[in-house]
Write a protein that binds this DNA or RNA. Structure first.
Lengths: 203, 203
DNA sequence: CCTTTTCTGTACTGTTCGGTACTTAAGTCG
DNA sequence: CGACTTAAGTACCGAACAGTACAGAAAAGG
């Protein structure tokens, strides 16, 4: 071990958690370094020393968000049937979008949509990360088609895209103040579009 | 008439149209006055004289957007059946989100999501205007329930919210570069969730 | 014609932005 | 104890931001 110089006076992980909240609430451009460092409880220079710059801090924040606040998405993929995968994902998503101890909405959707200035790169980065989730879901649904768990004519990519559209639309609604119950009511309706095998292929 | 001073040297409506595009592409905060006035082809002071300030310009831009670029939404409400209302809206929405001669996505969704700084008021304003559309659709669907055009147990507000969620989710996807075909494939699936009367009540 | 009224253009205001020298503090190593 | 290494804090940088004072230009009213 043997760290040489003066030891760091703050917990970088904890500071990153605070940064996640600020980016989540205010978006990439809306979060100033002053906002961020005040919330993180550290100095400007300490942030640059620990994370590089604002954009790298944002990347770290999104990574931490994906790991901690979107764990439900990876978990949903392990459900036994395609329908349960989708329902589990959309239910947990609706809950995550309306947690009392967290900002409303989704960091990935709210972080940046417009393309002005630096935000172009940021928006593309976030879009790519959302697309990665969509692809993972499509892969899981493709397996369901192979398994006969979804009708053979189902397009898994289109279905995955539909599910992501519902979750992103709900994120927009949540950011605008929709209640958890409202999001779940939307999920109730959205699930009607998920095809189900007439229940005779099951073991 | 008899206008007294020096006549205005530009077409305010045309200039507003240019401003709509800039706000659409870059969002409220992402669009600087320099960006705006350059696109509008007018001077900074001329903009302030004609529109007041950036926020009032934005309000005017959104009003013009709603009038011109969202006319399809009002038109969709006049379709004969609830299903046709929803389908017409979502199809026209998918087309509007991917017009070659316009920015991708939706000004109302992209304009502001984060809440930092002034954007709080802007985000709330846009959320309210989206909600107005949702209410208009809910009103139309409530009439459909009364008419027996939708099942009696249908919650028109929940259904309207679902339709708006799909359109907003598609807007997020379109802003991220999704193709028109992809949006329509999503609409194909989304429409499966719209209840239809078993087709015997029709005249 | 000259005054009045309104618009245009330049040049500026104060503030905030992300990022950074540079000094001071707090540790380990010899 | 110094010597070295790294973090923390202050005070600043140039650039960009929204908004404006002011001088000149173009029309109508008299």
């Amino acid at each position: 071990m043997a760290v040489r110089g003066r030891p760091r006076g703050f917990d970088a992980e904890a500071a990153l958690d605070r940064a996640v909240e600020v980016f989540w609430r205010q978006g990439y451009e809306g979060a100033s370094l002053t906002d961020l460092t005040e919330a993180m409880g550290i100095n400007r220079t300490s942030m640059y020393a620990a994370f590089g710059n604002k954009e790298e801090l944002f990347h770290r924040a999104v990574a931490r968000y994906a790991e901690a606040d979107m764990a439900y998405a990876r978990e949903a993929l392990t459900a036994p049937t395609a329908y349960e995968v989708v329902e589990s994902f959309l239910r947990a998503n609706a809950d995550a979008l309306t947690r009392a101890d967290r900002p409303s909405g989704c960091l990935s959707v709210q972080g940046a949509l417009a393309e002005g200035g630096d935000s172009g790169r940021i928006a593309r980065f976030l879009a790519d990360s959302r697309l990665a989730g969509e692809r993972a879901l499509a892969h899981r649904l493709a397996r369901a088609v192979e398994d006969g768990d979804l009708p053979a004519e189902t397009d898994p990519h289109a279905l995955a895209r539909y599910v992501m559209v519902v979750s992103e639309g709900n994120a927009v609604h949540a950011a605008a103040g929709a209640t958890r119950a409202a999001l779940h009511a939307t999920v109730d309706i959205a699930l009607r579009a998920i095809p189900r095998i007439p229940a005779h292929a099951a073991a």
